[in-house]
């Protein structure tokens, strides 16, 4: 009995509060079920069927789609390209943003201006900017190759040669991602107590490098971890630039996961197969999040 009393006391519920709580949540709950949970479950189930849009019926084929994925050279290329893309974009845009943030934070002059400049791609229509890049990187009329020609270098066909296309896309990806990471790093830097830097100086820290090692880097840990995870997740989702600039070409050299899923699903209407690709994509994203919360989180929080 005393147990019941003890449990009842802290959660004293005013009359009607339970009802009000559910009523206030109801629109969100209904739309959540209908627009998020149900379709997600359906997508998962779809991955185990041979459903094609317009086909009269569908059959449960178990792991058939995944079997096919393993044998599908196109998918393997797509997965590999995505990993390469993430492998380039994430490290470069993170390290670059960190360096930029330190440089911008080092003095007050021009801080707001530079922050705005590097942030600009975040708010620019990616499709439009992709077309701007297409012009910039155009093999014959593009300013980049024109400039290279002045130096006596024959520039490659950046976006239409299978040797350079992925690199060019990654470069555009870095350009897009760096501003966002920069803003996060700047927020992280301003959260470091100034007194810690000063204590370090009194303790005998003389060089910028030592200060970075002793104070900035460890205290930036949570921010860095977050930036690493979100940058990887965002770059796994690369779609716009591929859809606009290369459509996966030439010769599948720029085929990436989401674009493959899009073409399988909405060009060839093989929804079951496309759902299987989606599932692979989902597993990668979940894996990255798990890495953040389970493995790395413990190492950067000093609570």
């Amino acid at each position: 009995m005393s147990e019941a009393v003890a449990r009842a006391r802290p959660t004293f519920v005013p009359r009607g509060e339970g009802w009000a709580g559910w009523m206030l949540c109801l629109p969100a709950v209904l739309s959540y079920l209908l627009l998020l949970l149900l379709p997600t479950l359906a997508a998962v189930l779809l991955a185990f069927t041979d459903y094609e849009l317009g086909a009269p019926g569908l059959a449960w084929i178990g792991l058939g789609n995944f079997q096919e994925l393993l044998d599908d050279r196109g998918f393997r290329i797509s997965l590999r390209n995505t990993l390469i893309y993430v492998g380039i974009v994430a490290p470069v845009s993170i390290a670059g943003a960190l360096a930029l943030a330190l440089l911008i934070e080092a003095a007050t002059r021009g801080r707001a201006l530079f922050r705005a400049v590097f942030f600009l791609p975040m708010v620019s229509l990616p499709v439009a900017m992709a077309t701007a890049w297409q012009y910039l990187l155009h093999p014959t009329i593009g300013p980049l190759n024109a400039a290279l020609a002045q130096l006596g270098i024959a520039g490659p066909a950046w976006l239409t040669s299978s040797d350079t296309v992925l690199l060019s896309l990654a470069f555009i990806g870095i350009w897009e991602a760096i501003g966002f990471n920069l803003v996060l790093f700047l927020a992280g830097l301003t959260a470091i107590p100034r007194e810690l830097h000063q204590a370090a100086e009194v303790d005998g820290v003389k060089s910028a490098w030592e200060r970075f090692r002793l104070v900035t880097w460890p205290l930036l840990g949570p921010t860095t971890l977050f930036v690493v995870t979100i940058t990887m997740i965002r770059s796994v989702r690369v779609f716009d630039s591929v859809a606009v600039l290369t459509q996966g070409g030439p010769n599948r050299a720029s085929e990436v996961l989401l674009y493959t899923m899009y073409t399988e699903g909405f060009t060839f209407f093989r929804l079951g197969y496309s759902a299987a690709i989606t599932l692979v994509f989902l597993i990668i994203v979940l894996g990255l999040m798990l890495l953040q919360t389970r493995v790395l989180d413990k190492r950067v929080h000093y609570g």
């Binding site: 627009l35 998020l36 994509f281 999040m289």
Partner: peptide, 16 residues
């Protein structure tokens, strides 16, 4: 829900 990118429910939603 936070874990699921919006690309995942896209296929069934399109069908719907």
């Amino acid at each position: 829900g936070l874990l699921v990118p919006y690309h995942v429910p896209a296929l069934p939603l399109y069908v719907g």
